[in-house]
């Protein structure tokens, strides 16, 4: 196994996306429409009030945009893994001198960078110049938002890969995809921040790994957590990532064992 091969996977995935120009335009346009829809909803919800539950309207608009940027669509990842399992193409990866999970991570990192660069960033710029977005609350919060961003993507990748791998036992990733989507829509805070939820609900969701996908990184960008809390939640997030990553590694070793003993 050569580490140099993995960046090549990311690059190849990125290149493969350039093949469909129309898809790029369509997704960017769709993203833009959804963003303006969310902005309209929050503007209406504030109904002229300046502060609701400690958040201002500009904060809310910034929240929706950043949380949306972080809430990356894992469909492609789940499908890739699920299909590879269902069709048996996964054996092709076992025939190469590389680690399948690592090549998957590299490939989808390529997709992620593509999505952010080509779809999300332009939308963010358009909204930034037309509606306006808030800068990070402070230099500290700006700097901390970056590792939280990395953690957010790794968490998403791990959750998506887990769902895809479960197809080994369930033979379809379709139902899991919907399950994850439903959970994520609520628990990641991508649509509604946890601070607007009833105390008992945000109490639970605040400790589930999904909240690290959108809620915490965005809340930190907006300065809603003080430095000690920021570090504390970063630590909890890391622990979650380690636990889920460990589960993923275990599941993959089980899947591999099943493949090489049972032939899939």
């Amino acid at each position: 196994m050569r580490a140099g091969a993995y960046p090549a996977f990311a690059l190849t995935a990125f290149q493969s996306r350039l093949a469909y120009r129309n898809q790029v335009w369509a997704s960017a346009f769709g993203e833009l429409v959804i963003s303006f829809a969310f902005i309209a909803i929050w503007t209406a919800a504030f109904a002229g009030q300046v502060v609701v539950d400690g958040a201002t309207l500009p904060e809310m608009i910034t929240y929706v945009m950043i949380a949306g940027l972080l809430y990356w669509n894992t469909d492609r990842l789940i499908n890739d893994v699920g299909e590879a399992v269902r069709t048996g193409d996964i054996t092709i990866f076992l025939l190469k001198p590389l680690s399948y999970p690592a090549s998957l991570l590299a490939t989808h990192f390529g997709h992620y960078v593509f999505d952010q660069l080509v779809v999300t960033l332009p939308v963010l710029l358009i909204v930034g110049f037309s509606v306006g977005l808030l800068p990070p609350a402070s230099l500290f919060h700006a700097l901390m938002a970056l590792p939280f961003w990395a953690l957010s993507w790794l968490m998403l990748f791990t959750l998506g890969a887990l769902c895809g791998l479960l197809a080994f036992w369930l033979l379809t990733a379709f139902a899991l995809e919907w399950f994850l989507k439903g959970i994520m829509a609520l628990a990641s805070g991508a649509i509604v921040p946890l601070w607007f939820m009833p105390g008992w609900l945000s109490g639970i969701l605040g400790y589930l790994p999904f909240a690290w996908v959108s809620y915490y990184p965005t809340a930190i960008y907006l300065g809603k957590l003080d430095p000690p809390a920021t570090f504390l939640y970063f630590g909890i997030g890391l622990a979650w990532l380690a636990a889920l990553g460990g589960f993923l590694a275990w599941l993959w070793s089980r899947a591999r064992h099943r493949l090489i003993v049972q032939g899939g």
């Binding site: 050569r2 140099g4 091969a5 960046p7 090549a8 996977f9 190849t12 290149q15 493969s16 093949a19 469909y20 069709t87 048996g88 193409d89 054996t91 092709i92 025939l95 190469k96 001198p97 590389l98």
Partner: peptide, 30 residues
């Protein structure tokens, strides 16, 4: 895996959306 080559008539190892050359280049790294 480093010392063998495998071809499955029914499965593809090429990247569907990319020029053939790009799949070759990826294998150079692998």
């Amino acid at each position: 895996a480093r010392e063998i080559g495998v071809v499955f008539g029914q499965r593809s190892q090429l990247w569907w959306d990319l020029p053939v050359r790009d799949s070759f280049a990826l294998n150079r790294h692998i």
